[in-house]
Design a protein around this nucleic acid. Structure first.
Lengths: 198, 198
DNA sequence: GTGTCTATGTATAATTA
DNA sequence: TTAATTATACATAGACA
């Protein structure tokens, strides 16, 4: 069929939510949608009196942020938590896929972790029921009501958590190796919207 | 059945972007728009390969967060910026000696703790599904297959464990010693999950 | 990289189950 | 209270400047 001439545009077309290959189209989409996202965040804040922060890094590594009342104000509420917002930590995030040569070590580490978890599980078995009861009604285990636990199971619970945490940390250490170079420009604070891109 | 003629609804109505007074309507709006915001953030990330983090505190103080690949991963990249993270808060009283305002400070610390706990839960929500998947079929959370967790959620998993452990310890201390609560000691990040130089 | 335009896909305000 | 419905307001893909 021949489209009648005179139609200036097909209008908005439906697209699938999947990685856009074409870098030009991706860049335009990022720009538009980032603006839309910030607007939504702003409206949410205004309408509901909420404190909202949005941080976005484009694939090229340029950073953009929006915050109400300010990015810092919101992020600082997160910052006191261990490891977040600390400028001392390296940036292991966004690491690519592990190389094939790393798979061996990775698998081994995973095995070890698995064994540790299994051992942990065995140790935990006798307090399982009580802990499960403390967790009753909660959707996720970390919402468990610690106060419902008696003094008998608490120490073991704490020790178990510590061991598991260490296991996880070791596993994480093994998984992460490469450290991609972060690239950031300095702020040009106009409003609450910051653009750290070139 | 036959739908009685007449419009069942007026459909979406236009609203001004200004603070919603009615708390009920505000809560509903916050809920819906937060979901929409997170979805938009997710789509931006997927479409454009961008790293995105969104943090929102409702007026009531409840915290919600979304992050791809994870909230922490994104915020850590943002941390090196001046004023965000670490101790960038204005602290003029640090040099002087604390007076009776200590009470106020304590109260504030308690507030902060509350916010931190809320924030922690919010952050865990966005990895909840992944962890739940790793836990699939297992009766208890500590049976989770750590191997199945990716690098993005491992740190959060580890930190959740750490937090829970600390909670347990505090509670244990309270239980075991009938003495008045020790100082509200907030951060004690002895070991940092993000320290991969182990 | 941003702004404009059109036509259309999507988010959501109000309502109801 | 969390979920559907409906009709409409708004966001945005594509093309161009």
């Amino acid at each position: 069929m021949v489209r009648p001439r005179g139609r200036p545009s097909l209008g908005r077309q439906r697209i699938e939510i999947r990685p856009i290959e074409d870098s030009e189209r991706r860049q335009v989409t990022f720009s538009k949608r980032r603006a839309g996202l910030f607007k939504k965040a702003s409206e949410l804040s205004t309408l509901c009196g909420a404190a909202v922060a949005v941080v976005a890094f484009s694939k090229a590594g340029n950073a953009f942020a929006f915050g109400e009342p300010s990015v810092d104000a919101v992020l600082r509420r997160f910052a006191p938590l261990p490891g977040v917002g600390s400028s001392a930590a390296p940036d292991p995030a966004a690491a690519g896929d592990p190389g094939p040569e790393e798979l061996g070590a990775l698998r081994q580490a995973a095995e070890q972790t698995k064994a540790q978890v299994a051992a942990e599980q065995a140790r935990m078995h006798d307090v399982a029921e009580k802990i499960a009861r403390a967790q009753a009604g909660k959707q996720f285990w970390w919402e468990a009501d610690v106060e419902a636990l008696g003094e008998a199971e608490l120490p073991e619970f704490a020790r178990a958590l510590e061991r598991l945490r260490d296991s996880v940390r070791r596993h994480a250490n093994t998984l992460l190796s490469a450290t991609p170079p972060p690239q950031l420009q300095l702020p040009a604070p106009e409003l609450n919207v910051w653009d750290y891109s070139l």
